[in-house]
Amino acid sequence: MFGIRGNSAILISLLAAFVLASMPLPGGLGPFRPLWVPMTLLYWCLAMPNRVGVGVAWSCGLASDILHGGILGQHALSYLLLAYISIMLHRQIRVYPLIQQSAYVLLALMIQQMVVYWIEGILGNQLMVASSYWWPTLISSLVWAPFFLLMRAWRRRAQLH
């Protein structure tokens, strides 16, 4: 309709994810926001590993570091590992039913969040971590199915195969 094809469709989806991730949310909803950027990366790494790879994931991580504050390279490293695992496993995960995929998403995002957590620990930041740290991961996994369908429709419209 708008003639968005190929790589620009990927770029637009990533930009949208960044906007969603840094949009201020009303009330106390902030801590429950899904991990939009890692989810979008995950989708593209599973669907188009030859277009979106570790390099793109790393650059997105760097952008996250800038947008959300914190030490440079922290999110870059965690997204890098997320992308690597997903690219290595994409042939299996692609054929999983959506429920099983959601379980994989939970696992992969937990690894990603864990890496961020570890780096914070190495930097020696005092943390008062409640179980609420894992809410975004859990919620991302719960919304994975509709998110996946939406992204697939977007990919097909952009004629990416």
């Binding site: 570790v54 790393w58 390279g73 890098l80």
Partner: peptide
């Protein structure tokens, strides 16, 4: 590429 970028991340941090 993973190895290179890992090194780059650690260097950045």
């Amino acid at each position: 590429r993973l190895g290179l970028l890992l090194v780059a991340s650690v260097a950045l941090m």
